[in-house]
Simulated scan of single mutants.
Amino acid sequence: MEESLHPEKGSEHRVTPPHRSQAPRRKVHQVRQGQSQVHTDSLAGEEPLEIRLTHPSVRDPISIAVTMRTPGDDFDLAAGFLFTEGILPSREAIHSITYCRDPKVDGEQRYNIVNVNVYTDVSLHLEHLTRHFYTSSSCGVCGKASLEAIEVRGIQALPDGFTTTDEIIYELGNTLRLSQSVFEKTGGIHAAGWFDGQGNLLALREDIGRHNAVDKLLGHAFLHKHPPLSQGILMVSGRTSFEILQKAAVAGIPIVVAVSAPSSLAYDLAHQFNITLIGFAREGRFNIYTGGHRILLKGSNH
């Protein structure tokens, strides 16, 4: 089991903590036509993950966030979260990523804590950490303030140029579904897929949380320098929220496709930052909410 990752070595190894299953089995009573049978069923794994930052100038690790996740690809999740929240500017800022090595922490629980270790000359931008703000605020945040918060971080509207076709969009959902190995076992887990403009699946990540699946996927691309995120399509298995579109804007992703519907604030963000937003992409149809100029329709001259 590899317990550390050094981005400069270019490792593509997918890290899963020991004794953790993405689809643990549990005893269930299955009832059909008044009869009950006992058998075992696979469930979507769910455990907490604490993401910490360590910096040579700070004595103790800085706790950034705790998220409920499906074990597996934890280093991708931590890197993707820090990237899309604007805390780390580049892959080169990371010296290594490790599980917790504190002997005072219970052995198994060490694998529910990830330390992202950065270089001495890296400036941390903890004021950019927005997820905690949005999820803990008791008084609420208006949509206008949410969009302005992204602008303050210097995120610009995406350029035009990248396009794909309706025929490719039609096929993304089938490709994503057939590639979801954990969903196949559990029926209760989300997926995020990264496609090129020709509809080829470049990477896929699964998690019980939609945002975590996206963080894992973008963290993978962030760490391993895959083709530019500006030249591809992000597809998610559920609905699209403000947070998912925020991550797309930070990463420079021009097209976001979902099996279900977008929220109103996701729509507003996509419109403001020139992101093509597509929903209900299943069964040979889809809705284009914003950025229709990037989708070339069969039989159209535009």
Rank of each mutant, 00 (worst) to 15 (best):
L147D: 02
P89V: 04
E3D: 02
Q272Y: 05
I275C: 09
L229S: 13
I233W: 05
S237C: 07
G80M: 05
R110Q: 15
H125N: 09
L158T: 07
K104N: 08
I208G: 15
I169H: 14
R282W: 06
S263W: 05
P254Y: 06
L296K: 15
I169A: 11
Y289W: 13
I168A: 09
P159L: 12
P89W: 04
G188A: 10
E85G: 00
A79E: 10
Q37S: 12
R110I: 06
H125Y: 08
G140A: 06
Q231K: 15
D106N: 12
G161W: 07
Q156L: 12
L5G: 07
A65T: 02
D215C: 12
E85V: 00
Q272P: 00
E3N: 05
G299M: 05
E171A: 14
R177H: 13
N274G: 11
V28F: 08
K9R: 14
Y170E: 10
G292T: 05
R110G: 02
G154H: 06
A261C: 08
I62M: 09
H39K: 14
L88V: 05
Q231F: 05
E3P: 00
R205P: 01
P7H: 14
V31M: 04
V15F: 11
H29P: 00
Y119R: 15
M235R: 11
R285N: 12
P17Y: 10
F81S: 01
F75C: 07
G10M: 10
S42A: 15
N274W: 07
E167R: 12
Q246P: 01
P48E: 13
D41S: 04
H29T: 08
Y134E: 09
R285V: 00
F183E: 11
D160H: 03
G193K: 05
D74K: 02
L158H: 07
T16R: 15
I168K: 03
Q180T: 13
A248V: 11
V182K: 10
Y134N: 02
G279N: 05
R91E: 04
V257N: 00
E206F: 10
I255V: 15
Y289K: 00
T84H: 02
G34I: 03
G173Y: 03
R205I: 02
A221V: 09
F133R: 11
E243Q: 12
V116R: 06
E148L: 03
H13F: 07
I97N: 04
L5A: 08
V116D: 05
S136M: 09
D76M: 01
I94N: 09
L202H: 14
A79P: 04
P262M: 04
S237N: 13
A93C: 15
E148W: 06
N174E: 07
I64H: 00
D160T: 01
T240Q: 08
S123T: 13
